[in-house]
Computed example of a mutant assay.
Amino acid sequence: MVEELSPAEVEELLDGEDPPLVVDVSTEAEFALGHLPGSINVPLANLVSHLDRVAGAERIVTVCPRGEASVQAVRLLSAYEGTEDARIESMAGGLDAWDGPLEEGIDEDAEDDERR
Rank of each mutant, 00 (worst) to 15 (best):
N46I: 00
E89H: 02
I60E: 10
V23A: 02
D96A: 07
P20N: 13
L44C: 01
V25M: 03
L95D: 04
L5T: 10
H50Y: 10
D24K: 02
E103S: 07
I40H: 02
E108P: 05
N46R: 06
V61A: 11
D109P: 00
S49E: 15
V42R: 01
R66C: 01
G93E: 08
E81P: 12
E17V: 00
A57Q: 09
E68C: 00
V63D: 10
E4C: 10
D113Q: 05
T83D: 05
I106T: 14
L51I: 13
E104A: 12
A69F: 02
R116Q: 06
V74S: 06
T27V: 03
V10S: 03
V48D: 12
P43T: 11
T27D: 12
V54A: 06
W98C: 01
A69P: 01
D15N: 14
A29I: 11
M91D: 07
E114Q: 10
W98I: 09
R75H: 05
E28P: 08
P20W: 10
S90M: 08
V48N: 07
E108M: 04
P19A: 07
V10N: 04
D24W: 06
G82A: 11
L21G: 05
S39T: 15
N41Q: 08
I60N: 05
R116W: 09
T62M: 03
R116S: 09
A57E: 13
A86S: 15
E58G: 14
G82K: 11
G105T: 09
E114S: 10
L76K: 04
E108G: 01
V2P: 15
S26A: 09
L36A: 13
V22Q: 03
G82T: 06
E104L: 02
G93D: 06
E108D: 12
V10L: 15
N46G: 00
H50A: 12
E28H: 02
A55H: 12
G100L: 05
G67L: 06
P20G: 08
A86V: 11
A29E: 15
A86C: 09
S70I: 08
G16A: 14
G67C: 04
E111F: 12
P37W: 10
A8T: 14
A29Q: 12
R53F: 06
I40S: 00
A8V: 11
W98Q: 04
E12M: 05
E3A: 09
D113R: 14
D107W: 03
I60Y: 11
G67M: 10
D24G: 03
G94Q: 08
H50D: 13
P43C: 03
G100Q: 07
A110R: 14
S49P: 00
E58A: 14
E30Q: 15
E58K: 13
E3M: 05
V54H: 02
D15W: 00
D18E: 13
Y80R: 09
G38T: 04
E111W: 14
L21C: 09
D85G: 15
G56V: 12
P65T: 09
P7F: 03
I106E: 12
V71D: 08
A32S: 15
S26D: 02
R116K: 03
S78G: 15
V42F: 00
S26L: 01
A92F: 11
I88H: 08
T27W: 01
R66E: 13
V10W: 00
A86R: 03
V22Y: 05
D99N: 11
N46D: 15
A32N: 05
